[in-house]
């Protein structure tokens, strides 16, 4: 597979990150509204699971939005990162951003008393994808760092 230009990845993730941030900050506003108007389907103790799940969806979604933006900025500042398996990192991060907050959200739509609904099964898959993306990026940054040090050694 031909290497994609880092800018393409960067642009895609920055754009996705801002839109994700918008969606999940909007969800935060909705949740605040539910608090403000004391909506029982969200605030009753019997709906505690829903409240927890949707709060987690909001928090994970917003944070993942920020991760996308940082991911994009990293690619802009460190184009060498693209020499790693950046395609895998990118798609894993995309998948995590859909499955992790989505799983939490669906887990709170229908639930079983103290247990979230079956939608929650998406969350661990998303978490695994996030872990893969982070691992790939961590390895890529380590390579860049090592390469820089060896380049510096040659100059001396």
């Amino acid at each position: 597979m031909p290497d994609r230009h880092p800018l393409l990845y960067a642009r895609k993730h920055v754009r996705f990150g801002w839109w994700t941030l918008l969606v999940f900050l909007a969800l935060g506003l909705v949740l605040e509204t539910l608090h403000g108007f004391k909506i029982r389907m969200y605030l009753d103790v019997s709906n505690e699971t829903r409240r927890l799940m949707w709060t987690l969806a909001h928090a994970h979604g917003a944070l993942l939005g920020l991760v996308h933006i940082i991911f994009g900025l990293c690619l802009r500042t460190m184009p060498e990162l693209c020499r790693g398996n950046i395609g895998l990192a990118s798609s894993s991060l995309m998948g995590a951003s859909l499955l992790l907050p989505g799983g939490f959200f669906l887990g709170g739509v229908a639930f079983y008393s103290g247990d979230p609904g079956l939608g929650i099964t998406l969350a661990p898959v998303g978490a695994a994808m996030l872990a893969i993306a982070v691992y790939v990026m961590a390895r890529a940054t380590a390579r860049v760092h090592l390469k820089k040090e060896s380049d510096d050694g040659r100059k001396k």
Binding site: S46, E48, S113, G114, D115
Partner: peptide, 9 residues
């Protein structure tokens, strides 16, 4: 309490 919040309440 954890698994049966409504009943507990």
């Amino acid at each position: 309490q954890t698994c049966h919040p409504a009943e507990y309440e």
